[in-house]
Write a protein that binds this DNA or RNA. Sequence first.
DNA 1: GTCTATAATTCGATAGAC
DNA 2: GTCTATCGAATTATAGAC
Lengths: 190, 190
Amino acid sequence: MTTPRKTQFFAESLRLIHDRGFKGTTMRDIAMKMDCDVANLYNFVKSKQEILDLSLFGINEEFHNGIDAIIQSGYSPIAKLKRITQLYVRLSFEKPYQISLLVSGWRHLSASRKADFLRERAAYESKVRQVIEEGIAIGEMKPIDPILATYMVLSAMRWLFDKSMDNSSALNPIEVERQINEFVISGIEL
Amino acid sequence: MTTPRKTQFFAESLRLIHDRGFKGTTMRDIAMKMDCDVANLYNFVKSKQEILDLSLFGINEEFHNGIDAIIQSGYSPIAKLKRITQLYVRLSFEKPYQISLLVSGWRHLSASRKADFLRERAAYESKVRQVIEEGIAIGEMKPIDPILATYMVLSAMRWLFDKSMDNSSALNPIEVERQINEFVISGIEL
DNA sequence: GTCTATAATTCGATAGAC
DNA sequence: GTCTATCGAATTATAGAC
């Protein structure tokens, strides 16, 4: 069951985890934000670790589903790449604190869950790489190293989640998406 | 005084801090790697926090000095940008664990030192932005948003330190630098 | 769902002998 | 520089009453 209180619990937790890191965020910190006692938090999760697990694999699945839908579409490699950046930009604006987990928070997963995450991440990086390889093969893209290109394309957007939660920057999602796509595509299009 | 033992202390500390995070790394963890007792570590620093402070502001100064030398040179904006990526790539290979601090470890600085760091970071981002603005002004670069361009250019390299410490990837620094520069410049050159 | 109280562990740091 | 020993504080998590 998802209650408003539970929703607030995850929202406050993720904000704190982003600001102070997972280990640097205590259950007391979260309880303070929730204005309740520490013991209450265990109504929502059975451990602190579970906050990270549920949040991280939630956004992970959402991202993977989006990628898979794009990969399986009939679009050209360039069009697919544009849709992938579009997906990443949208998620960075809508769920910046979850994206933060995909970028850096995953390090604090348990050893077993971390192995799961890294395996899945390698899998979707491989999917993006195959799009680029296909683009090169059909002459749509430059003969760039597909592995490096994958890292550069995905990494070029990894500042966005951090700025989108900064109210002082006031970015326009539409304009940001347009400019990121132009930059990325210019760097890779033949 | 810098002894071999002290050098090892910082090396082991930085590796652990990268893998487990600053809060997730304990003085006991470091002592274990050093094969000595916890108390010995306080011969090298007066607190755990000082490990982060010294390491982070050390690499920070090195990076800033490099940027400043490039900015003050007589090169064209495009050439300056190439040299900046060259500097970033070189440091990512030579000192990946320190670069990791610049990318994410800075969050665990004390409030006062964190403010210092963020001020200096904004200053050098501004310097890079001015190079791009000049490049646009003289018609060397596309009329891209200079702020977004700065973030994209710098961010496009932020995966590198992480891969360079991964022995299984075996990247060639020269080739990586060439491809990153080609990607970045293609994305921004008119 | 909320609270009080507390168990059990782990942490950074210090004192003082050698 | 190295060690033993330990302090005081902070942490996650649980038990049990309301």
